[in-house]
Design a protein around this nucleic acid. Structure first.
Lengths: 284, 284
DNA sequence: GACTGTGAACGCGTTCACAGCT
DNA sequence: AGCTGTGAACGCGTTCACAGTC
């Protein structure tokens, strides 16, 4: 409390739930669109629809920021845009470095969304000496050797990692050592960082795999079938790692429990790890 | 339970919590790495460390799949790889279409992670007639006109949208009409889809904004006092400008829906401070 | 002795429903 | 009359801690 006025209104920072923080950017985007159409006010109902959430949740979220609405009327668009921007720290410009300028890194460098909303790509860094100097998105790629200097010179605190998985942890360590405290990781690896450093990850194959899970379930339900099938067969066969690439259909149908099958889980002999063939999933 | 052997421990499918499903790919990746190193078994502790979660959570997660471990020993790596793959539906190959071959779309097409773990890029689609035929990642780009036919011919049920925000909903509608039931959306927009269709979104700027929020908070704490700083400045500056317009170069295709709004300074009457304190942080 | 599987306690986030302003 | 702000109920997910098994 150095300052006399400690009031610090809005930012009951400490109290904003993580889930709410994650939705603020969504609200901000919807509000920005309204702002461009010069819409003066919105109700929680309308805004919620635009952001793809329900209105109760939105009101609750906003209540953590403060009382920014007017009962009987709604929220003032411009005012709310400002408040959320401030809460998110977008009233200042964040310099960002992108490490790993391959296909993805280059795409990120070119991504307009970066440049707009409060972020500025301060530097592109890659380990390939041949890339040094090559312009990507109108900016010369710099070599990893200068990573520390670049970060310091530009006062960068947010780093994006788009290197191959194998190099990610190493790059991460250097970024952290150089003072980076927030990392957006696109490499398919778990990064370990010291306390105080935030890491968010974006993983394409994970997202796809989650979709596949649900997709498979849909297929199974549709088929109406019970479950069992493939397993029963597998079991009597003595080995249960069939994956039978020939009959993919059958495989798709199983593994989906309609609502039936109560917890009839018993301890019958649960055969385990055969080693026969367990392909199916390609190695990385 | 028509079948004699009903035990089917695993697949109480209906019961697998969403949060658990989202972690299965993580476990799978860690397990695959172990498998490649020919490690035969792992304890929940070791595997949890490799996947970046705590062991209690991991054991709980696995318990939803069935009793696949051995007390006193741990889990059989190969067996678990198979079980999780099956649960995720990766024992079959999912054809995927990517719509919107700009920088990001091309990067995705080239992304190895797609091709490996159970997914196969069946087609690349773009609305630009000039791109038709152009090879990207060794595959000719096809025109949007043929979208429906492509999906049907290839039996595709998963679509990836990497178009600019403005085109996303339209593309989404066509994909859904064509039979797609799972969508991975990279466009910065909220997509609305009918029931039964799953959408997962990946949004770069949202991730960055979340990081910025925490980053800002760190800076504030570090400064000893609360956050104040930026506000004081904004206040004395008499500007309420949110997200000042950055160099929006919106390169090529992907671009965020909106650009920063030019501070339409609405003459705010008297805004109530958040927690009833302080006279707001608005332009006076 | 080692490690899994899981009921029970707990905490966070969402939803409900209504009191409180305008 | 309309819409926000929020206490209270609820449900999901995480963590604890220990009984059960090898």
């Amino acid at each position: 409390m150095a300052t006399g006025r400690t009031h610090r209104p809005a930012t009951r920072s400490r109290g904003i739930p993580e889930a709410t923080v994650a939705r603020l950017p969504l609200y901000l985007r919807a509000l920005t669109a309204l702002s461009e159409r010069s819409v003066p006010t919105v109700s929680s109902e309308e805004l919620a629809a635009a952001a793809g959430v329900n209105s109760a949740k939105l009101r609750k979220d906003f209540s953590y920021l403060g009382s920014y609405g007017t009962r009987g009327v709604g929220y003032d668009v411009e005012y709310l845009v400002y408040q959320i921007s401030r809460e998110l720290g977008l009233t200042q410009d964040w310099p960002v470095v992108i490490v790993g300028i391959g296909n993805l890194g280059a795409a990120l460098a070119n991504y307009g969304g970066f440049a707009s909303r409060g972020f500025r790509v301060a530097a592109l860094i890659d380990a390939d000496p041949n890339m040094a100097g090559t312009p990507v998105a109108g900016m010369p790629v710099q070599h990893t050797d200068d990573l520390e200097k670049i970060i310091e010179d530009n006062g960068v605190s947010i780093g994006v990692i788009s290197t191959p998985a194998g190099a990610a942890q190493q790059v991460c360590d250097r970024l952290v050592a150089a003072g980076i405290t927030s990392i957006l990781n696109f490499a398919p690896t778990v990064l370990s960082v010291p306390d105080g450093v935030d890491v968010r990850k974006v993983d394409l194959s994970i997202e796809l795999q989650i979709l596949a899970f649900h997709e498979q379930r849909k297929a199974g339900e549709e088929a109406g079938a019970e479950v069992v099938v493939a397993d029963a067969v597998a079991e009597t066969a003595g080995v249960d790692v069939p994956v039978d690439e020939g009959a993919a259909e059958a495989t798709a149908a199983e593994a989906t429990a309609a609502e039936a099958a109560p917890a009839a889980r018993t301890e019958s002999t649960d055969r385990k790890g055969p080693d026969g063939d367990v392909p199916a999933v390609m190695p990385a």
